[in-house]
Design a protein around this nucleic acid. Structure first.
Length: 985
DNA sequence: GCATCATCTTA
DNA sequence: GTAAGATGATGCG
């Protein structure tokens, strides 16, 4: 049933492609002759990008009112493809308005499509000119659709020995996929190869036409067979292969599908014709014309004219950049894919760091940016702020480290394209404006009531930082989260993070580039870089003012965009305002509070470690027969495996010997024992005892970490300067470090941690009966697992069996493979696989969870946490198998780790609300644990309070914020109290 | 001076 | 097998 649509209305001329048969199906072509080492032939479905970007991107307009979002979106897709593949052959194909043979075949064909918006149709001529100016062949054929042109070219390209990338998001194109033809959606980043088609549609590419024929396509007006949907079509094709075969075996076919098939068999040929992409069009074009014009000068004038007419400023600037794809990118000839990847990385890097050469010129004088240098101007700003529902505030300081930063100036914005900068402490010698600066204390005391007014919303980029700075000047931007209706109206960094945590950078410059297509003035532009960088108070006030005003202006514009996005997404709105922003306020308090450390004790430890290290070094030199750097893996590897002739040396990817703990501990050699002990002590001394002493406040002896709230891909926090989330606990010596974390006189350390929270989440998400029961009965989960899998009672489980079960339980959370488990348990891969099979046999729903999660990541491109946070999985369709598999494991882990992160953030909010602040302070968060210092005589009561708040959080705080979670197992919190963190844990 | 690698610490 | 950050060594400019 894969007859090709062959119609006299089509411009078909068999003479142009004489060697090809008319029965041409790309998916079944012989591809043995195709050379994959050359760049692929790129076929772009221009119509797809036109529609997709028009509807998906925010409206953009030139000053003359010309809409440009589809032009820009499509252009970006083209540039991305050129940078990625460095193609020598490429074509962009568009539909025409003329009816096609499909319209003549069926009155319903695409009949339900509304007419094109004028704002879109206006953009088409520009786009055509742009494609041509980029030197890319443009194909439009009356009576044919872009799909048919692409089908024809794909067929021809493969016949000629090219491999092909079809750039589209149209699922119908899946019928063209084979092992040399893939689909790539440059808008979503999704790549679909043969396996991808199987994963997505449950059938092979060569069955795609039959699949569409059976199922129909309502958006195209193809009816399909009534009563046969996706699932039935899949089942039938998997069983019978083709429609022909299904019809021949109609008697065997079960269910209501059979009857419908018999009744509508007559419609099948028509539907098939409509669904089949033509592969033998007369494209009326010389094959040799489909090469990119790689002459950099050929069209540059036209390109310049277009960019300037469309007001594409960055593109215009990049035309003069040597890495613009239009600048002869293909002239270097065939690039191997490795080189292409490197080249692309370089281009991305250089594009990101494209600098504005002259700061003064960068100021856009349409914008009303003001420097406040006199009291009347300041009075008028005050009035404006007082009468605003919300405004942007941004602080400029002498340092990025909040602990040591001094306030240099403040900027404000109450609407887009207007901003104010109040310089307060600039001190550049020779800058005449410095003497005109207003008095800092006067200004701050006037601003204080406004900044502390909970009814005026504050907007900012990374407001936690500004809140820290202002608190140093006795201004409480935080308010308190219990009774503030409108404080901290928006943090644009957190908004971006809630919308997509997979983005690695949420800095203002990155957001401006991404959401506003604006290259902001970078800090390096105004303050220099490297050793020559000066602090902001040394920047001239007029330059500083532009920079600061732009920050406030951009933040306001981002606020508008995010507000719009969040208005359409109730859950993201809640995640931002009910979860992330309240968490940020609490983190701010925790960071400011800090935790007390016992400095003399740490110094004593340092000294002790140092003495032992010196002894170990000497012994190592004796064993080795010469001195070498024990801390150098390279020198150690050479010493051990080359000079001393120890066998069992493995190499790392860079070719040097691997000397990790896992390798060394298998080797029986005196030097190895020395090295392992040396490393352990050196680690503790360098990373912990010395480092903590260095960063502790010299007066209060408290350590203040910084929590990063918009960094991880799962929603977890991270901790830096110092990292207090990886303080040792496993070894006795390591725990000495923990003993240095103490509470002041009269107080104790209280630690409260969620027990097995991720496994409980696995029980919840999978609904697995056995797992749920174990938690509901309060069993030791690893023992229970071992007993279940081995068919024993819990009393019969041996320590080794429990250990293996624990490894498999952790493996589950990490998206386990037999390979990984085998490595962990030091057994063969087969044994590990047997173990996994036994496990899944007893926990079938857990297996299902893993399958379903993978499938959901493929289908939707994201997975979700318990509070509905969307965690995107961009690499899930990566063409590199290793990358793809890693993305699958991450997708399985993300809902578990991310939900645990959601829950502990809720817990922090819940606890903060009930904690008696005079008697207790929340100090640290370590993923599933909260650490407090509390009055010793109140510790028992407060402990109960905290435990209760944490355990009940899903039925209290979550519900109050509008999340309904019916959790399958109890949340268990274990608390303990001690004079130091080690005792409390 | 800066980036990358190998190693080791945590949940 | 997931998610992080800090350190010293090494190599490049």
């Amino acid at each position: 049933m894969t007859d090709n649509a062959h119609n006299s209305h089509l411009p078909i001329n068999p003479d142009t492609v004489p060697s090809f048969e008319t029965m041409t199906n790309v998916a079944t072509m012989d591809t043995s002759h195709v050379n994959k080492d050359t760049p692929p032939f790129i076929l772009v479905d221009g119509s797809y990008y036109l529609f997709r970007t028009y509807h998906a991107l925010p409206k953009m307009m030139t000053t003359t009112g010309q809409h440009t979002n589809a032009i820009r979106g499509t252009l970006n897709a083209l540039l991305k493809l050129m940078r990625r593949y460095h193609p020598t052959h490429m074509a962009v194909c568009f539909d025409t308005r003329a009816p096609t043979f499909r319209h003549q075949l069926s009155a319903d064909y695409k009949a339900s499509r509304p007419p094109m918006d004028i704002e879109l149709s206006q953009q088409i001529p520009y786009l055509h000119r742009l494609v041509t100016a980029l030197g890319i062949p443009l194909l439009r054929i009356e009576g044919a659709e872009a799909d048919d042109i692409i089908g024809t070219l794909a067929y021809r390209a493969v016949a000629e020995g090219h491999h092909v990338v079809i750039s589209t998001g149209d699922k119908d194109m899946a019928q063209l996929v084979n092992d040399c033809v893939i689909l790539e959606d440059s808008f979503t980043g999704k790549i679909t190869d043969s396996q991808g088609v199987v994963d997505k549609f449950g059938i092979n590419p060569e069955q795609m036409i039959d699949f569409l024929t059976l199922m129909g396509d309502s958006s195209d007006g193809i009816k399909g067979v009534p009563g046969i949907g996706k699932k039935t079509a899949q089942d039938l094709l998997n069983k019978y292969g083709t429609i022909d075969n299904i019809l021949q075996n109609l008697a065997d076919v079960k269910g209501r599908g059979a009857k419908s098939l018999a009744e509508h068999a007559g419609d099948i040929p028509l539907n098939a014709q409509l669904a089949t992409i033509v592969t033998d069009l007369d494209i009326g074009q010389d094959w040799s014309d489909l090469q990119l014009n790689t002459d950099p000068c050929a069209h540059v004038d036209e390109l310049r004219a277009l960019y300037s007419e469309l007001e594409f400023k960055n593109e215009l600037a990049s035309l003069d950049h040597p890495n613009h794809p239009a600048n002869g990118q293909g002239s270097k000839g065939v690039a191997a894919s490795q080189a292409a990847t490197e080249a692309q990385a370089q281009i991305e890097k250089s594009l990101q760091s494209t600098k504005i050469d002259n700061i003064k010129n960068s100021k856009n004088h349409d914008k009303a940016w003001h420097t406040i240098l006199d009291m009347p101007a300041f009075d008028s700003l005050i009035e404006q702020l007082e009468n605003s529902a919300h405004f942007v505030i941004d602080t400029e300081t002498t340092s990025v480290h909040w602990r040591q930063a001094e306030l240099v100036g403040l900027s404000f914005a109450t609407q887009a394209h207007e901003a104010y900068y109040i310089p307060l402490a600039h001190s550049l010698e020779g800058d005449a404006l410095t003497t005109k600066q207003l008095d800092r204390d006067t200004i701050l005391s006037r601003l204080k009531p406004i900044l502390e007014n909970p009814n005026i919303g504050k907007i900012g980029q990374h407001l936690k930082y500004d809140a820290h700075i202002l608190s140093r000047y006795d201004i409480d931007l935080l308010g308190s989260i219990h009774d503030k209706p409108n404080n901290w109206a928006m943090d644009t960094m957190l908004a971006s993070y809630v919308i997509n945590a997979a983005i690695t950078r949420h800095g203002m410059d990155d957001l401006a580039r991404h959401y506003l297509q604006t290259q902001t003035i970078s800090f390096e532009d105004v303050a220099g870089k490297g050793a020559k960088q000066v602090s902001f108070d040394q920047v001239a006030i007029d330059i500083a003012s532009d920079y600061a005003c732009e920050d406030a202006d951009i933040t306001y514009q981002l606020f508008k965009i995010f507000n719009q996005k969040l208005a359409n997404d109730d859950n993201n709105q809640k995640l931002l305002h009910e979860l992330e922003i309240p968490t940020a306020e609490i983190l701010c308090q925790m960071e400011a509070e800090g935790i007390l450390i016992k400095r003399p004790f740490l110094n004593e430890l340092s000294k002790r470690f140092d003495e032992e290290i010196i002894v170990l070094e000497q012994r190592a030199y004796e064993v080795a027969g010469e001195e070498f750097n024990l801390a150098s893996p390279k020198q150690l590897g050479e010493m051990l495996f080359d000079k001393l002739g120890v066998i069992g040396g493995k190499k790392t990817k860079t070719g040097q010997y691997s000397t990790g703990e896992a390798v060394l501990s298998k080797i029986d050699h005196p030097l190895v024992d020395i090295v392992l002990e040396y490393r352990s002590l050196a680690k503790l001394k360098n990373t912990y005892t010395d480092a903590l002493d260095n960063v502790a406040d010299p007066i209060t002896n408290r350590v203040h970490t910084s929590y990063h709230q918009a960094l991880t891909s799962t929603g977890r926090l991270s901790s830096t300067d110092p990292n207090l989330q990886n303080i040792p606990i496993r070894t006795a010596t390591g725990r000495l470090i923990r003993q240095a974390f103490i509470a002041p006189e009269g107080r104790v350390i209280l630690a409260a941690d969620y027990s097995q929270i991720e496994l409980r989440l696995m029980a919840h998400f999978s609904g697995d009966e056995n797992l749920t029961r174990a938690f509901n009965e309060g069993l030791d989960i690893h023992t229970a697992t071992a007993a279940e899998v081995l068919g024993k009672t819990v009393e019969e489980v041996t320590p080794t069996e429990r250990r293996n079960a624990k490894a498999i339980n952790f493996g589950l959370l990490y998206g386990m493979s037999a390979f990984g488990l085998a490595k962990q348990l030091q057994m063969s891969r087969g044994e590990a696989q047997d173990y996994i099979n036994m496990y899944f046999n007893r926990y079938p729903s857990v297996k299902e969870y893993m399958i379903n999660t993978r499938a959901s990541a493929y289908d939707k491109g994201y997975v979700e946490t318990i509070l509905g946070r969307k965690l995107y999985t961009p690499d899930i369709n990566n063409s590199n198998r290793m990358v793809k598999q890693a993305a699958e494991r991450a997708a399985i882990n993300a809902p578990l780790q991310g939900s645990a992160a959601d829950i502990i953030k809720l817990a922090m909010i819940a606890v903060d609300k009930v904690l008696p602040k005079a008697q207790a302070k929340m100090l640290l968060q370590v993923h599933d644990e909260l650490v407090f210092e509390v009055d010793a005589d109140k510790a028992a009561d407060i402990s109960k309070l905290i435990k209760n708040a944490m355990q009940e959080v899903l039925s209290t705080t979550a519900v109050a914020s509008g999340w309904q979670v019916d959790f399958a197992v109890p949340l268990l919190v274990e608390t303990d109290i001690g004079s130091n963190w080690d005792e409390a844990h």
